[in-house]
């Protein structure tokens, strides 16, 4: 068991502060975030526990947890927090750090899904559902997952063979470039 103070106890809190501008020290662990979070029953680390682990400089569990990937960013936590901490923003910062750490992720499939989804938008301006489904299934090595839904969705016009491209695709590319630029520490 390593000592809690084998490293600078403020290290991770300062890291999150510089990335997100949010100070986890303000949290008094009242738990209102966890109480209101609609996804909380499915989370391995509760929202208030996320803040606690930042406070005591224990980032390992956070970088590996499922919580940050199943967080819906609904911001119920941020809006109701009595200390006015933007908890959803902190979740986002930990997601960034988790990707940078390149270690095992709490929800590999969620990350794969997000990446394919965003890639589709970057290329076309809109997501191409068929491309998303096919690429996701391939990534999961489950080519026939949900295949039974295909015909019905085609029939109802929910699944086009060809994707759409928006008119001003350049603007979308700009957004992606800008966000890459803003993410630099």
């Amino acid at each position: 068991m390593s000592y809690l103070n084998s490293q600078d106890i403020h290290q991770f809190r300062n890291r999150i502060l510089s990335i997100s501008g949010e100070d986890a020290s303000k949290c008094i662990q009242c738990g209102k975030c966890s109480a209101g979070c609609p996804i909380s029953p499915e989370m391995d680390v509760q929202p208030n526990q996320v803040l606690r682990l930042i406070q005591i400089n224990d980032p390992d569990a956070l970088l590996r947890c499922s919580t940050i990937w199943i967080c819906a960013s609904c911001q119920t936590c941020s809006v109701r927090c009595p200390e006015e901490i933007d908890i959803a923003k902190i979740m986002d910062s930990i997601r960034k750090l988790a990707l940078e750490a390149k270690g095992p992720l709490g929800e590999e499939n969620v990350v794969k899904f997000d990446e394919i989804f965003l890639d589709s938008i970057r290329k076309r301006g809109r997501v191409h559902e068929l491309e998303l489904v096919m690429k996701y299934n391939l990534a999961l090595r489950q080519p026939f997952k949900d295949a039974h839904l295909g015909p019905v969705m085609f029939a109802r016009g929910k699944l086009g063979f060809l994707g759409h491209k928006i008119k001003e695709l350049g603007k979308i590319k700009e957004i992606f470039q800008n966000s890459k630029r803003l993410l630099k520490p």
């Binding site: 009242c30 738990g31 209101g36 509760q46």
Partner: peptide, 27 residues
């Protein structure tokens, strides 16, 4: 129960209080 309440809503003639038990780690 250690935890702040996030929401109170009506269900029939009762009130549902949604809070958290931070010591047990669950909603």
């Amino acid at each position: 129960i250690r935890g702040r309440v996030s929401k109170i809503y009506e269900k029939g003639d009762k009130l549902i209080v949604r809070g958290v038990d931070t010591l047990a780690g669950k909603q």
